[in-house]
Amino acid sequence: MVIRKSFLFLILISLVLGKVYCQVGINTNLPDSAVALDINAQTSISFGGMQIPLVTPAQQASINTTASSDGTLVYVNYTTQQCLEIYDGVTNSWQQIHCSTVTSQLIISEYIEGGGNNKFIELYNGTSSTIDLSTIKLIIFRNGGDFPIGGTDREIFITGSIAPGDTFVIANVLQTEVSASVIDYNVPNAGDPLDFNGDDPVLLTDLSNNIIDVVGIPGTDPGTGYAVDGQDTYLNGIRRLASITDPNASWNTSEWTAHPENDFSHLGTR
């Protein structure tokens, strides 16, 4: 961003009714109303001695920015990185100043191939920040599927968010065994339903298809299922070891333990 020659560099941060104002003033000493962010459920990050609001991409997009919002600062919590961004009132766009990699990310913590429509994927947030699920998706590779992504693969987009240290349970909408209070998101039966079997790898990716975490080996049909803990993923469930908090873009069976087909006792807990 090109900063105009004549400017007043002034940090304006104040707390008013639970809202945070954070603006670097350029050619002004008055904060713009667009920088008032309702982040009661959010935190802030210290950058260069400043406490900058930590927001999701959706919250950033909801800011009603104008030309006078020039200099608004936010720290955006993406899936794989956090970025300090400043609003450029000349180009009407957000400019990234600094990004850092999120070292511990969302993981697939449980994969249940139950009878009938009783299919479940549990996600776990091992980070210190809320993760916006609109930034990720699941890809199911039918019978091993096509890799890179091809015609036999299914993309499942999710809505919602996961708080730090919490789980998020995704289910086939037709499942009948687990209480609705445990389920965070039901995948519709139309379109791309959640109907995998034990030989269907499941990938957690960002929206650009960069792999975050994986169950199985995409592009490889294992027959009935993948061997895990003396069992396999056909008509069984597998659960991530509690010691595993980081995702793995390569399938590693030593990170998992197996349990019987319709054992749903750990869904929603970690």
Rank of each mutant, 00 (worst) to 15 (best):
Q60A: 14
S33T: 01
P57N: 02
T43A: 11
A61L: 09
F47R: 05
T65K: 12
D38C: 04
N77H: 05
Q51W: 01
Y75S: 06
V76M: 09
S62A: 15
Y21S: 07
Q59M: 15
S62F: 03
G25E: 15
Q51H: 12
C83L: 10
I52W: 02
Q42W: 04
I52L: 06
Q81E: 14
G89V: 13
D88V: 07
Q42F: 07
F47E: 01
V35P: 00
P31A: 15
Y78L: 14
S69Q: 11
G48R: 00
Q81F: 07
I26P: 00
Y87S: 05
Y21H: 04
I26Q: 07
L37G: 00
T28F: 04
M50I: 15
S44P: 02
N64G: 01
T80K: 12
S62M: 14
V35F: 04
S62Q: 13
K19W: 08
N64V: 03
K19Y: 09
S68W: 07
N40R: 12
M50Y: 11
I39K: 07
Q82H: 04
T56V: 06
M50S: 04
M50C: 11
N77C: 09
E85F: 00
I86W: 09
N77W: 01
Q60W: 03
N27I: 00
V55E: 14
I63P: 02
I45D: 02
L73K: 00
M50K: 06
S68I: 13
G49S: 07
V24N: 08
V74T: 11
T80I: 09
N77L: 04
T66C: 02
L73P: 00
G71Q: 10
Q59E: 15
D70H: 14
L73H: 00
M50W: 12
G48I: 02
Q42G: 05
Q60I: 02
Y78G: 10
Y78W: 15
N27E: 07
I86C: 13
P53Q: 08
I63N: 01
T43C: 09
V24M: 13
A67W: 03
Y75C: 08
I45Q: 10
S68G: 02
P53L: 07
Y78V: 03
Q59C: 05
N27Y: 06
A58T: 08
T79N: 02
E85S: 11
